[in-house]
Amino acid sequence: MLSMSIIAWIVIGGLAGWIGSKLMGTDAQQGIVLNIVVGIIGGLLGGWVFSLFGADVAGGGWIFSFVTCLVGACILLFFVKLVSGRSKV
Protein backbone atom coordinates (compact mmCIF):
# COMPACT_ATOMS: atom_id res chain seq x y z
CA MET A 1 0.00 0.00 0.00
CA LEU A 2 1.27 3.42 -0.90
CA SER A 3 1.80 5.85 1.91
CA MET A 4 0.06 9.22 1.70
CA SER A 5 2.03 12.20 0.54
CA ILE A 6 2.48 15.32 2.62
CA ILE A 7 -0.04 17.20 0.47
CA ALA A 8 -2.65 14.49 1.06
CA TRP A 9 -2.12 14.74 4.82
CA ILE A 10 -2.52 18.52 4.64
CA VAL A 11 -5.75 18.21 2.62
CA ILE A 12 -7.22 15.48 4.84
CA GLY A 13 -6.05 17.30 7.98
CA GLY A 14 -7.50 20.59 6.77
CA LEU A 15 -10.88 19.06 5.96
CA ALA A 16 -11.00 17.10 9.21
CA GLY A 17 -9.93 20.14 11.23
CA TRP A 18 -12.51 22.34 9.53
CA ILE A 19 -15.38 19.87 9.98
CA GLY A 20 -14.24 19.15 13.54
CA SER A 21 -14.24 22.87 14.34
CA LYS A 22 -17.74 23.17 12.87
CA LEU A 23 -18.94 20.26 15.02
CA MET A 24 -17.29 21.64 18.15
CA GLY A 25 -18.36 25.26 17.55
CA THR A 26 -14.86 26.73 17.28
CA ASP A 27 -14.81 27.56 13.57
CA ALA A 28 -15.15 31.32 14.11
CA GLN A 29 -11.90 31.33 16.10
CA GLN A 30 -9.81 29.41 13.57
CA GLY A 31 -8.39 30.09 10.16
CA ILE A 32 -7.32 27.62 7.50
CA VAL A 33 -3.83 27.15 8.93
CA LEU A 34 -5.14 26.35 12.40
CA ASN A 35 -7.72 23.97 10.90
CA ILE A 36 -4.90 22.11 9.14
CA VAL A 37 -2.83 21.97 12.33
CA VAL A 38 -5.82 20.76 14.38
CA GLY A 39 -6.58 18.11 11.75
CA ILE A 40 -3.01 16.81 11.60
CA ILE A 41 -2.59 16.75 15.38
CA GLY A 42 -6.07 15.22 15.54
CA GLY A 43 -4.87 12.51 13.16
CA LEU A 44 -2.04 11.64 15.52
CA LEU A 45 -4.36 11.73 18.53
CA GLY A 46 -7.09 9.76 16.77
CA GLY A 47 -4.57 7.19 15.53
CA TRP A 48 -3.32 6.70 19.07
CA VAL A 49 -6.87 6.37 20.46
CA PHE A 50 -7.96 3.92 17.75
CA SER A 51 -4.81 1.85 18.22
CA LEU A 52 -5.73 1.47 21.92
CA PHE A 53 -8.89 -0.29 20.72
CA GLY A 54 -6.93 -2.55 18.36
CA ALA A 55 -7.83 -0.82 15.07
CA ASP A 56 -5.40 -1.14 12.15
CA VAL A 57 -4.81 2.56 11.70
CA ALA A 58 -1.96 2.25 9.19
CA GLY A 59 -3.86 0.05 6.74
CA GLY A 60 -7.23 1.75 6.97
CA GLY A 61 -7.20 3.71 3.72
CA TRP A 62 -8.32 7.24 2.86
CA ILE A 63 -11.77 7.20 4.45
CA PHE A 64 -10.54 5.65 7.69
CA SER A 65 -7.70 8.20 7.78
CA PHE A 66 -10.22 11.02 7.42
CA VAL A 67 -12.45 9.58 10.17
CA THR A 68 -9.39 9.13 12.39
CA CYS A 69 -8.37 12.77 11.87
CA LEU A 70 -11.94 13.97 12.43
CA VAL A 71 -12.39 12.05 15.68
CA GLY A 72 -8.97 13.17 16.90
CA ALA A 73 -9.69 16.79 15.98
CA CYS A 74 -12.97 16.71 17.91
CA ILE A 75 -11.22 15.21 20.95
CA LEU A 76 -8.47 17.82 20.72
CA LEU A 77 -10.91 20.72 20.39
CA PHE A 78 -13.00 19.36 23.28
CA PHE A 79 -9.99 19.40 25.58
CA VAL A 80 -8.85 22.82 24.36
CA LYS A 81 -12.31 24.23 25.13
CA LEU A 82 -12.29 22.46 28.49
CA VAL A 83 -8.92 23.88 29.47
CA SER A 84 -9.52 27.37 28.13
CA GLY A 85 -12.90 27.56 29.87
CA ARG A 86 -14.72 28.95 26.85
CA SER A 87 -18.26 27.80 26.51
CA LYS A 88 -19.32 30.14 23.73
CA VAL A 89 -17.76 32.94 21.75
Rank of each mutant, 00 (worst) to 15 (best):
M1F: 07
M1Y: 05
L2A: 10
L2E: 12
S3Q: 02
M4K: 05
M4T: 05
S5I: 08
S5N: 07
I6Y: 11
I7E: 07
I7Q: 06
I7H: 02
A8G: 04
A8W: 08
W9E: 10
I10F: 09
V11R: 03
I12H: 05
I12M: 08
G13E: 09
G13D: 08
G13W: 07
G13Q: 07
G14W: 06
G14S: 06
L15K: 02
A16W: 10
A16R: 11
A16H: 13
W18A: 11
S21I: 09
S21F: 04
K22D: 06
K22T: 12
L23Q: 04
L23C: 13
L23Y: 06
L23V: 15
M24D: 03
G25N: 15
G25S: 14
G25F: 13
G25V: 15
T26P: 02
T26E: 05
T26Q: 05
A28I: 12
Q29H: 13
Q29L: 14
Q30A: 09
Q30R: 15
Q30W: 11
G31S: 08
G31R: 10
I32G: 12
V33S: 08
V33H: 04
L34W: 11
I36P: 08
I36V: 15
I36W: 08
V37Y: 08
V38P: 04
V38S: 08
V38K: 02
G39K: 11
G39L: 12
G39T: 14
G42M: 14
G42T: 10
G42Q: 11
G43P: 13
G43R: 11
L44I: 15
L44R: 11
L44M: 14
L45C: 09
L45Q: 10
L45F: 14
G46E: 12
G47L: 08
G47N: 04
V49G: 05
F50I: 10
F50H: 10
F50W: 15
F50Q: 14
L52G: 03
L52Y: 07
F53H: 04
F53R: 04
F53L: 14
G54N: 13
G54E: 12
A55E: 15
D56E: 13
D56L: 02
V57G: 00
V57K: 00
A58M: 03
A58W: 00
G60N: 12
G61M: 10
G61L: 12
F64R: 05
F64V: 12
S65D: 06
F66K: 07
F66V: 09
V67D: 00
T68P: 01
C69Q: 14
L70A: 06
L70Y: 02
L70E: 04
L70V: 06
V71Y: 01
G72R: 03
G72Q: 03
A73K: 04
C74E: 02
I75F: 05
L76F: 11
L77P: 01
L77R: 01
F78K: 03
F78C: 01
F79I: 10
F79A: 01
V80A: 01
K81F: 00
K81N: 02
K81W: 00
L82R: 08
V83F: 04
G85D: 00
R86M: 01
R86P: 00
R86C: 01
S87L: 09
K88V: 08
K88E: 07
